[in-house]
Amino acid sequence: MRTLYRFIVAGALSAPLLVGAAGLASADTNYNHDSTVAGPDGAWHYSVCAGTDGHGNSYYREHLSWSGPHGAGTSNTGSSAGHHHHHDDDHHDDD
């Protein structure tokens, strides 16, 4: 009887830990940052975002645009991993 009591107590104490761990494993994470500057010599805009969706998928995007007295330009960097890609990718690999 004492062994059964210990088993029940151990199960009751570990249940909240298991539920909490499952919540952590499926949590979405996101980070976003944007900056924009304009002045007499030009302007630029920078943005970055990264995150996960809780299903093993992750992404990273970075964008920079600028203009000034000598021209303008843009730069994009992106990466994703996992089965489903939820964000726009410039290149798709259909292999």
Rank of each mutant, 00 (worst) to 15 (best):
R2N: 12
R2G: 12
R2L: 15
R2W: 10
T3P: 05
L4W: 07
Y5P: 00
Y5I: 15
R6K: 10
R6Y: 12
F7Y: 08
I8S: 11
I8P: 02
I8C: 10
V9E: 04
V9I: 14
V9N: 03
A10H: 05
A12T: 01
L13C: 06
S14K: 04
A15V: 08
L18Q: 08
L18Y: 03
V19T: 00
V19C: 01
G20R: 00
G20L: 11
G20C: 09
G20W: 02
A21G: 04
A22G: 07
G23A: 11
A25L: 00
A25M: 02
A25I: 01
S26A: 15
S26M: 11
A27H: 03
D28V: 13
D28A: 10
T29W: 06
N30S: 08
N30K: 08
Y31T: 09
Y31A: 09
N32W: 07
H33I: 13
D34S: 11
D34R: 09
S35E: 15
S35K: 13
T36M: 12
V37M: 11
V37P: 01
A38Y: 01
G39M: 06
P40W: 07
D41S: 13
G42Q: 04
A43Q: 13
W44R: 08
S47M: 03
S47Y: 01
C49H: 01
C49W: 02
G51H: 00
T52L: 05
T52Q: 03
T52C: 06
T52D: 06
D53W: 03
H55V: 09
H55F: 12
H55W: 12
G56K: 03
N57V: 04
S58A: 12
S58I: 05
Y59C: 00
Y59E: 02
Y59F: 09
Y60D: 00
Y60N: 04
Y60V: 05
R61H: 06
E62C: 03
H63K: 09
W66N: 02
S67C: 10
S67A: 15
S67F: 09
S67E: 14
G68D: 01
G68H: 05
G68N: 06
G68S: 01
G68C: 00
G68L: 04
G68Y: 02
H70P: 03
G71C: 07
G71R: 07
A72T: 10
A72L: 12
A72I: 08
T74F: 11
T74L: 13
N76G: 11
N76A: 14
T77G: 09
T77I: 14
G78D: 03
S79L: 07
S80T: 05
H83V: 07
H83G: 01
H84Q: 03
H85K: 07
H86T: 07
H87N: 04
D88C: 12
D90V: 12
H91P: 04
H91E: 11
H91M: 14
H92R: 14
H92G: 09
D93T: 14
D95M: 14
D95H: 15
D95K: 14
